[in-house]
C-alpha cells in the first residue's frame, strides 16, 4: 500500500495557503473544470485529515483539471454554525467571483462541479452551509456533489475517546489513556441534541421542497468506529463501510487508496 509517493505532481502546483489563513489550496496547472472542497472534523487538520489526497491523488490523470481546496477552521474552539459561515463564504466565492482563491487563481474559475467532502464534525459544518445556500436560492448549489466520511450528524462525538482526538504523537498517546476527565464541550453533539435536531428538521424541509443537493451522494463509515454514531441521517443513502478503517483513518487516501474512486465518481 503506498504511504508516500516521491513522484512530483505532474498536473498541480504546490499547496498554498488561502487568504483566510487556515485553508489551503492545490491548484491544477490547466484551467480548472472541477474542484474538490475538503472539510475536516473536530480537532482535525485541513490537510492531514485527508492525507494522500494532497500527494498520491495528484498523480491521477482524472484529476488533472481539478483544484483541491482544504478548508481549515478551529474545530475545537469554534462551533459548527460559525465554521459553516466561514465555509459558506469560501464556497460561495469559489463558485462565483473566485476572490477567496486570489492570488492562486487570478480570475473566477467557473467550476462545472464541486465535490464537497466532509469528515466527522465537518458533516454538520457542510450541511449548515448547504442549507443556507438553499435558503438563499443560490445557483451554484446544483453544481455541488456531497460525500461524507464518518459523519457526526447522527450523534457523537463520544466523549471518552480522547486518545484519538488529542493528536498523533507519543505524548498524546499516553495522556489520552491516563486522563479521566470528560470533555463537556462535546455534549452539544450528543444524540438528539438541539443542534442536531435543528439540522435534521432543516434538511427534511429542504428535501421536501425539492433540494436534492443537500442529500449526500455517498456516506462512508469506518468498520471500527468508536467516536460517532453510524446511524444514517434522514434522506442519506445507506452507508458504505470501509473495511479496517477507524474514525480518523477513514478519510485517508494513504491508508485506503480505493477512496479515490468514491470521490472521482462524483466529478
Amino acid at each position: 500500500m503506498p504511504i508516500f509517493d516521491f513522484d512530483s505532481a505532474p498536473n498541480h502546483r504546490l499547496v498554498t495557503q488561502l487568504a483566510d489563513g487556515r485553508s489551503k489550496m492545490i491548484s491544477c496547472r490547466k484551467p480548472a473544470k472541477h474542484c474538490i472542497l475538503f472539510v475536516h472534523g473536530f480537532n482535525g487538520d485541513a490537510i492531514d485529515t485527508w492525507a494522500g489526497f494532497d500527494t498520491i491523488a495528484l498523480n491521477d490523470p482524472d484529476l488533472a483539471e481539478t483544484d483541491l481546496i482544504f478548508f481549515g477552521y478551529d474545530g475545537v474552539r469554534s462551533n459548527a454554525l460559525a465554521a459553516s459561515s466561514f465555509l459558506f463564504d469560501l464556497l460561495d466565492s469559489a463558485m462565483t467571483d473566485g476572490k477567496a482563491l486570489h492570488p492562486i487563481r487570478s480570475s473566477a474559475p467557473n467550476y462545472e462541479s464541486c465535490v464537497l467532502a466532509a469528515h466527522s464534525l465537518g458533516a454538520l459544518v457542510t450541511r449548515w452551509a448547504l442549507i443556507r445556500a438553499n435558503q438563499q436560492k443560490l445557483d451554484w448549489l446544483d453544481k455541488i456533489r456531497y460525500i461524507l466520511f464518518a459523519p457526526a450528524h447522527s450523534g457523537g462525538i463520544i466523549v471518552d475517546s480522547v486518545t484519538e482526538l488529542l493528536g498523533s504523537n507519543p505524548i498524546s498517546a499516553f495522556i489520552g489513556s491516563a486522563a479521566k476527565v470528560k470533555i463537556p464541550l462535546l455534549h452539544a453533539l450528543r444524540t438528539g441534541s438541539p443542534i442536531l435536531k435543528s439540522l435534521e428538521d432543516h434538511t427534511i424541509s429542504a428535501e421536501a421542497a425539492g433540494c436534492t443537493t443537500i442529500k449526500a451522494r455517498r456516506v462512508l463509515i469506518a468498520e471500527h468506529e468508536e467516536i460517532v454514531s453510524n446511524l444514517p441521517f434522514p434522506g442519506d443513502p445507506f452507508p458504505t463501510a470501509i473495511r479496517g478503517a477507524t474514525h480518523t483513518s477513514v478519510s485517508k487516501l494513504n491508508d485506503f487508496p480505493h477512496l479515490i474512486t468514491y470521490v472521482k465518481e462524483l466529478l
Binding site: 499547496v15 494532497d54 500527494t55
Partner: peptide, 18 residues
C-alpha cells in the same frame, strides 16, 4: 533531484506554519 520529496516537505510546512 527529487521534486516529489520537496512537495511532501512543502505540505508538512503548510500544516504547521500558522
Amino acid at each position: 533531484d527529487s521534486p516529489g520529496a520537496f512537495e511532501a516537505f512543502a505540505n508538512l510546512y503548510e500544516r504547521f506554519r500558522n
